[in-house]
Amino acid sequence: MLDHVFTDAISALRDAFESAFLERQPFEEHFQSDVLLGDLTWETSYGLPGEGEPPRVVAHITFDWPAWSQAAYRRWYVEDELDQCPAIEIEIVLRVQQLARPVDAEAMYVSVPSHSPEIGGDRLDRAGLTTEISHPDPDDPLDLTSQYAVEITYEGLYELAEETVADGRSTLLDDHFGVLGGWIAATLVKLGDLDLGFLPAE
Rank of each mutant, 00 (worst) to 15 (best):
A107E: 11
M108R: 13
M108P: 08
V110R: 09
V110M: 12
V112F: 02
V112I: 07
P113M: 12
S114Y: 02
S114A: 00
S114K: 01
H115T: 01
H115M: 04
S116G: 09
S116D: 07
P117W: 14
P117F: 15
E118I: 15
I119T: 00
I119M: 03
G120A: 05
G120C: 06
D122S: 08
R123F: 03
L124V: 11
L124R: 00
L124S: 06
L124E: 00
L124Y: 07
D125C: 01
R126S: 07
A127D: 15
A127M: 15
G128W: 10
L129M: 11
L129P: 02
L129Q: 10
T130S: 12
T130P: 02
T130V: 13
E132C: 06
S134K: 00
S134Q: 03
S134E: 04
P136Q: 15
D137R: 11
D137G: 10
P138A: 14
D139A: 12
D140G: 13
D140Q: 14
P141V: 14
P141G: 12
L142G: 10
D143F: 15
D143R: 15
D143Y: 14
D143E: 15
L144I: 10
L144W: 03
L144C: 09
T145W: 12
S146N: 07
S146L: 03
S146V: 11
S146H: 07
S146R: 13
Q147R: 14
Q147P: 04
Q147G: 08
Y148K: 05
A149M: 01
A149T: 03
A149Y: 05
A149W: 00
V150A: 08
V150W: 08
V150F: 11
E151F: 10
I152F: 07
Y154M: 10
Y154V: 08
Y154Q: 06
G156I: 09
G156L: 09
L157C: 06
Y158L: 05
E159I: 06
L160T: 05
L160I: 15
A161V: 11
A161E: 08
A161F: 11
A161G: 11
E162A: 08
E162G: 10
E162S: 05
E163N: 03
E163C: 04
